[in-house]
């Protein structure tokens, strides 16, 4: 053994082999696990699915029971596009080999977001309560159109805040690109829904006066 120490070349060779092994090990882990189970990207992909699920449920109801063609078209658009996004986020999680679900919603985005959620009755930003959903599902026609617009505008505002949080936190190109697209789309949805809502309210008012 003591002879070994007299040959620095042997030491260097052993160290080099070990470092190479360590390098492979690190590469192996990072190649198979980017981003990790506790990463903001994985947290965003899980939580945004939950958030989207409710939007799809609201939009499906409006598509079936609403009256205003423009509002129903927006609802159709939201239901189909957010369903596609749910599938996209699920396949990210599967590719990354991480949990599909976690018991700690919004923890990826930091304490502030978790507190906001607690203030919102345990719901993520912008999500409707069970009571609001139950009330909405009693409505049809004009009343459904109005409540849908109000619920979905709030829902989108919350969704945009979540997407902005991941854009700040992540440098994963796929995730940041998708989140940025969500922000753009949902902002334009809000403008459109607000426009149609204003029209509906104005029309109802003039009809009431006439």
């Amino acid at each position: 053994m003591s002879r070994l120490w007299q040959r620095p070349a042997v030491l260097i060779a052993i160290a080099a082999v070990l470092m190479l092994g360590a390098g492979f090990a690190i590469g192996w882990v990072s190649a198979t696990s980017t981003p990790g189970n506790d990463s903001p990207e994985a947290g965003f992909a899980r939580d945004m699915q939950t958030h989207h699920q409710q939007a799809v449920a609201m939009a499906m109801y409006e598509w079936q029971n609403g009256e205003d063609e423009a509002m129903r078209a927006i609802a159709y658009d939201i239901a189909t596009s957010q369903s596609a996004e749910i599938g996209m986020m699920r396949s990210w999680l599967r590719e990354w080999g991480v949990q599909m679900s976690s018991g700690e919603p919004m923890s990826w985005a930091g304490e502030g977001h978790v507190h906001d959620m607690e203030d919102n009755g345990g719901l993520m930003a912008g999500m409707a309560t069970d009571e609001e959903m139950a009330e909405f599902k009693q409505l049809t026609g004009y009343e459904a159109d109005v409540m849908f617009a109000n619920l979905m505008i709030d829902h989108h505002i919350g969704g945009i805040a979540m997407a902005e949080a991941i854009v700040d936190l992540s440098d994963n190109e796929t995730v940041v690109d998708a989140a940025s697209r969500m922000i753009t789309v949902q902002k334009s949805d809000i403008a459109n829904m607000q426009g149609h809502l204003d029209n509906l309210l104005a029309a109802a008012e003039s009809a009431g006066q006439g």
């Binding site: 030491l11 260097i12 052993i14 160290a15 070990l18 092994g21 360590a22 090990a25 690190i26 882990v29």
Partner: peptide, 15 residues
């Protein structure tokens, strides 16, 4: 070199 070896083995084990 012992230190390097220990660190490297540790990383492999963790991975």
């Amino acid at each position: 070199f012992s230190g390097v070896g220990v660190v490297a083995l540790g990383l492999i084990a963790v991975a």
